[in-house]
Design a protein around this nucleic acid. Structure first.
Lengths: 239, 239
DNA sequence: CGCAAATTGCGCACACTGTGCGCTACGGTG
DNA sequence: CACCGTAGCGCACAGTGTGCGCAATTTGCG
């Protein structure tokens, strides 16, 4: 009796393949990946885990996504789709650029895992959403009076500043999240160690002391707008 | 014969433990990790691989480093140590800040893997080198005339812009490296696909066409200094 | 000097990862 | 009805970070 195939759990338990689920698709996979990342962070993104959330096996995902790196590229372009870019209007270009920058920063802070991932993918992999948003931002700057070649430079300047700020903030918030504290009540754990760390560095202590009496969220906000105004002033001077 | 312990490779082959190697130490581990990262990239950093390069087993490293995340924090502070910060001098503050920014950008481009890693760690984890460099940069801005509270804002602005630019560049260079091309000869592979991607987006095509006739390195350089001058102009206007 | 205590390195094991291969069942066409 | 492309899945493999406990070496103390 040569045991016809080792896999015979039960020949009768067949016919359990239903098509109730909306089936797998690249869109569904990417959307669920974003949800998983928002809820549990970058380390928690595994093909097995993502498959389970979709009611599917791990390797089923590979029918719709080449590999994990490609999935991440898709996820990044997905969240680029959240960016809001106002219509071009010469009169209000400063407000429009400000809104773009705020939208980008808000997007990164809404998805803090993107800080890590943007360092791998950045603006290099050109997905459709990134292309579309870039085109419309260029239109805004173009209408503002920047020459075609210069609009590129201006856009890169604003985006670089905004991404740099937001990535730092996101890294900081992720650190807090890992330590289990919220931003308001981290005083006990981290403040003590950082205060000890900057001992003997008077200028850092000065700057640090200012953080005590203000809402940290407000400080981050002010910080961001201060630098953004600097950049915009510098750009305006070049018009 | 109950086989006294399964591990009896040879009772005679003992005494092979020598202390010729400088032994393991946190410094040696971190330094070798940086070397490995520079040579083979972030994905190639595994505890086993790093151990092998040091002539040690994987788990031996854990005597000197709590875990991989801590190793990465140490590595980041290690490369922060490469930053050059000029002495404070009111007359030449603009040149000094420029040199800081260039030094930071050069550091990131020298260690492209840091782009990914800075998105996790950023400026949040305060290692000794980061504290020291921050203190001295604050001194530069302080001497330039920025009030204590404002010097923080100014520094963050410059650093955010510089990190944003350099991280994007590093991500782009890493992408090229993964595809096996150098920056000059990527024309054949990637240019075709990106040109197709931006079809129907006139403003992006315009900006893209400019890249054809110039040295890409020079373009990146000009891009960086353009934005940096913007930021510095904005700061100067606030003095 | 000699012996005890602390430190260092390492083999093993575990749970988990990304992903290639080949099978099975389904949906649609002739 | 037969057929075929395709979606999903079980299995397997190599490789990961890291806890545990043993062995050897170094250090400290009498």
């Amino acid at each position: 009796m040569p045991a016809a195939k080792p896999t015979v759990p039960s020949v009768w338990a067949r016919q359990r393949r239903q098509r109730e689920q909306p089936a797998l698709s690249q869109d569904r996979i990417v959307a669920e990946a974003v949800r998983l990342l928002d809820e549990e962070g970058l380390d928690a993104l595994s093909m097995r885990g993502l498959g389970t959330r979709l009611g599917a096996g791990a390797t089923s995902l590979y029918r719709h996504v080449a590999n994990k790196d490609e999935l991440i590229e898709l996820v990044v372009d997905e969240i680029y789709g959240e960016l809001r870019v106002p219509d071009a209007d010469p009169a209000t270009w400063r407000a429009a650029v400000t809104e773009c920058a705020q939208s980008l920063r808000a997007m990164i802070l809404r998805h803090p895992w993107s800080a890590t991932v943007l360092g791998q993918v950045g603006l290099a992999e050109l997905g459709p959403n990134l292309i579309d948003r870039s085109e419309r931002m260029l239109a805004v700057l173009h209408a503002a009076g920047f020459a075609p070649g210069t609009a590129d430079l201006a856009l890169n300047t604003v985006l670089a500043y905004t991404m740099g700020t937001a990535i730092s903030e996101a890294a900081y918030l992720s650190m807090l999240a890992r330590s289990g504290q919220t931003e308001d009540q981290w005083a006990d754990d981290l403040r003590a160690t950082t205060e000890q760390a900057i001992e003997g560095h008077p200028r850092m202590q000065e700057g640090y002391a200012a953080l005590h009496e203000q809402d940290p969220r407000q400080i981050r906000e002010d910080n961001f707008t201060y630098g953004l105004e600097c950049v915009l002033d510098g750009l305006q001077a070049r018009l």
